[in-house]
Design a binder for these strands. Sequence first.
DNA 1: GGTCGAAACGGACCGCGGTCCGCTTTCATT
DNA 2: AATGAAAGCGGACCGCGGTCCGTTTCGACC
Lengths: 195, 195
Amino acid sequence: MSKPLPLLTTPPTERADAARNREALLSAASELIQGCSVEGVTMEAVAAKAGVGKGTVFRRFGSREGLMASLLDHAERAWQAAVIGGPAPLGPGAPPMERLLAFGASRMHLHLQQGALIDAAGRTWGDNYAVTGFVTMHVRILLAELGVEGNLPYLATALVAPLSLPVLRQQFDQAQMSEEQVMAGWEELVRRIVG
Amino acid sequence: MSKPLPLLTTPPTERADAARNREALLSAASELIQGCSVEGVTMEAVAAKAGVGKGTVFRRFGSREGLMASLLDHAERAWQAAVIGGPAPLGPGAPPMERLLAFGASRMHLHLQQGALIDAAGRTWGDNYAVTGFVTMHVRILLAELGVEGNLPYLATALVAPLSLPVLRQQFDQAQMSEEQVMAGWEELVRRIVG
DNA sequence: GGTCGAAACGGACCGCGGTCCGCTTTCATT
DNA sequence: AATGAAAGCGGACCGCGGTCCGTTTCGACC
C-alpha cells in the first residue's frame, strides 16, 4: 500500500530529534526566564539547560529574537483561541461593542505582561503578520458589525496602535496614567470612532 | 569682580576637549552612515574616524543606542523648530486643521526617512520624553483650537500612535498601502475624532 | 538489518558592544 | 606660571550573539 500522498500531509517534515530539541529548548528558555530576567538569559545557557549545543539553538530559531518570538507565540495562540472560541465577552456571544472593549483591555494586559519578551523579540515579533493581521482583522470585523462605515482597515489599525507597548509605557511612565485611565481613554476613542 | 553666579550659567560644564570630541564623533558617525548602512557602522569605526579611542565614544553617548539617538536628535530639533516657527501650514499661521494634516504628513515622512536610525536607537529614543511629549502636546493644542472636547491627552496620543514606524511598516509592507493611502486614512481618522 | 543521502548537531571561532583602570589633559585658583 | 584635583581619554579585555564545518543521527528505501 502506498503511503498517503506526502504532499497532502506535511511536505517539509521535521525530523523527530529536531522536534524534540525544539520542545526542550522552549521549555529550557521558559524556565530560565522564570528564574532570571529575560535580558539575563543567554543563548548558551538555554542550550546548556536543554542539553544541546549552541548551534542547535540558532538552527532552530535563527536568532535570539526568533527564540523569544517563539515563546511569545505560545501566549499569542492561546489569546487568539480565546478571542475565536473562548468565553464572552472576549470570545463570541457578546454584543460587538462589549467584545471590542473586552478586546482592548485584554490586549493591553497581554502586552504589559509580555513586555520584556516583546522587547527581546524585537522586529521578529513586531513584523509578524500572523499577529498584526489577526488583531486588526478582528477589530475590523467588530467595527463592521457595529455598522461603522468608511476605511475600516485603517480605522482598525488606528484603534490597535494605541495599545502597543511603547505607547502604553509612555502613558504609564511619563503621563503617570493608571490602567483604568488608559482603558477609559481607549473606550472614549472607540466611541468617537464608532460614533 | 566675581564670576557670574555659576549656578545660573552651566553648572555641569563640559570640558572643551570633550565638546570637540562630541562634535567629531557625531560628524564621523554621520559620514559613516552615508557610506554604509546604519547596521554596518560599528562603534570602533566611528571612534577611529573621529580619531579618538573607543572608550570615549561610550563615555560621551553611553551606548550605541545613545549615539544613534543623538544623531536623531539633530533632525528632531530641526523638525520641532519647523513646527514652532517654520512656514505654514506646518508652522504657525495656517488654520488648525491644515496644521494638523501637515503635521501628520510631515511626521510620517520623518519617521520613514529616519527609519533605520530609529531602529538602531531603540528604546533610548522611543522613551525620550522630549520627543513624545512635544509631539502629543502639539496635537493636543491643535485639537483644543479645533474645539474638540473630551480627553485631549489621550486623543492626541491616539492620533500620533498610527504614525509610529512599526505601524507604518505594517501598512506599507503587509497591507501594500501607498503613502497617499496611509495619509488618506489618517486624515479620515482625524476628521472622525474632530467630528 | 543494511545502506545511503540529507538533515541535524556541537563547539571552536569571530566580531562587536560594553567595561575598566591607569595615564593624560584641562582649567580654576593662587 | 605653578599646582592640584577632577574630568577625560584610550585600548586591553570580557561576554554574548551569531557563524562554520567536520561529525553524527535519522529515516526512507531496498
